[in-house]
């Protein structure tokens, strides 16, 4: 007997047996995990050449970064006296430490590439055009956040590579008119990169920036889900003044209140 046909299964999935496509849509609609997806998408979105699946790749890399990053946090103390030693311990003594660190590092580099490539692909597809302008703007912020996360993480090993790259990076702030000098001081926590900088970058890297990142990502996905069925370059669909509004002319059948599973 299948789990979803038992009393317990029904209480979990709350969906009818999958007999028709409508049942399947209903099951999708009542699933918490699937609610970040629309119920239906345009067929062309399935093709590899449509998106190259770069958005999915970026999201998966973010997940890999969160998992490997949390593992590394168990073995790392952000202080100039301990940080470098902890890195050596991670690489030599911690079980799978070197491997997890590698995965974290390469995921971060790859994520910068996939996020940038995702933006380029969206540009050439013209997918930033109305009504998707605002999602593009959120995407720009996500790219900036990716770079900031990479940069703050770069300091944490406290080796020569880290120390001087961050010295150069933060010194750039000095040249911003009016607020530059104090912005650099707030970021660095002193005249030069030191203990205060390390703890600041650590907090930014493991708490503040990831939270902001996830918040922006959720809005990004939500906008994608809302717009997933809107077509482009068709009169009255996706480009007209009433496109996407409920009941507006050109709204596809089923995008209203009752239909479409929305």
């Amino acid at each position: 007997m299948k789990l979803r046909e038992t009393n317990v299964g029904r209480s979990i999935f709350r969906s009818p047996d999958r007999k028709t496509e409508r049942d399947r849509a209903a099951g999708h609609w009542s699933s918490f995990l699937l609610h970040i997806y629309p119920v239906k998408v345009r067929r062309e979105e399935l093709h590899f050449r449509y998106s190259w699946y770069l958005g999915v790749a970026s999201t998966v890399l973010l997940a890999s970064l969160v998992v490997s990053g949390v593992y590394l946090m168990f073995f790392y103390v952000p202080s100039p006296t301990t940080a470098y030693g902890d890195m050596q311990t991670i690489q030599t003594e911690v079980a799978f430490g070197q491997f997890i660190r590698n995965v974290h590092r390469w995921s971060a580099h790859l994520m910068v590439i996939t996020v940038a490539a995702h933006m380029a692909r969206v540009f050439y597809r013209g997918a930033y055009k109305p009504p998707r302008e605002f999602n593009w703007v959120i995407g720009v912020f996500l790219l900036i956040l990716t770079l900031l996360l990479s940069f703050t993480g770069y300091l944490l090993p406290w080796d020569q590579l880290a120390y001087w790259a961050v010295t150069v990076g933060t010194s750039m702030a000095d040249f911003v008119p009016f607020i530059g000098g104090s912005a650099r001081e707030v970021l660095v926590g002193g005249d030069q990169v030191g203990a205060a900088t390390l703890i600041r970058f650590y907090v930014l890297h493991v708490a503040l920036l990831p939270l902001i990142m996830v918040a922006f990502l959720l809005v990004h996905l939500w906008r994608w889900r809302k717009d997933a069925m809107l077509d482009q370059e068709r009169p009255g669909m996706g480009l007209g003044p009433h496109a996407g509004e409920e009941g507006g002319v050109g709204a596809p059948p089923g995008s209203g209140k009752q239909g479409g599973g929305e």
């Binding site: 104090s182 707030v186 660095v188 926590g189 002193g190 005249d191 030069q192 205060a196």
Partner: peptide
């Protein structure tokens, strides 16, 4: 928050 995060005087060289 900005003021709290400013470095304390004398924290430099």
């Amino acid at each position: 928050s900005w003021d709290l995060l400013r470095p304390l005087p004398g924290s430099g060289l």
